[in-house]
Amino acid sequence: MLELNAQSIGFLVFSVFTIGGGLGVVTSRNLIHGALFLILSLFGAAGLFVLLSAEFLAAVQVLVYIGAIAILIIFAVMLTRSMTRLSEVFNRQWWLSAVVAVGLFVLILVGVILPVFGGMDTASVAPDVATTVDLGVALVDGNQYVLPFEVASILLTAAMIGAIVIARDNE
């Protein structure tokens, strides 16, 4: 059963941030408000990472998602002309996105949450959580994740080249 301690309070607060922020994103008409709600939601997710003892991921969440991606989104909104004050719904395919969202939710519910619901024994989980050092070792270990590590670099390079190609005209 849910005990009332620092962790459960934290979980409640961060869940409210995450879900409330998410609701704000889809309901607010003002795009900048939507972006700020997104930041609230991402902040809540960072808090949830902390509760899972994944401190490094929490810092990454704040640094990359709030510090970079959210700012890019706000920036993209400001780049557009008069998109900040929308008054009418112009998305005619909202029902399609609703179906996709509900389908995804059911998929996660049936596939991930229901199988472990009630069956999770906290004692069976190993107490030693992998640290950031372990992550660093695993990333460059020849037997573990060194290939994905390098592929990530190639992916980032491709992303940057793609962005430059799209954003700049042919000269």
Partner: peptide, 17 residues
């Protein structure tokens, strides 16, 4: 902004290393 984002993610990978 985009160039920064790419480098930001790169630095995140380098910290555990």
């Amino acid at each position: 902004g985009l160039v920064f984002l790419v480098f930001d993610v790169e630095m995140i990978f380098l910290f555990p290393w």
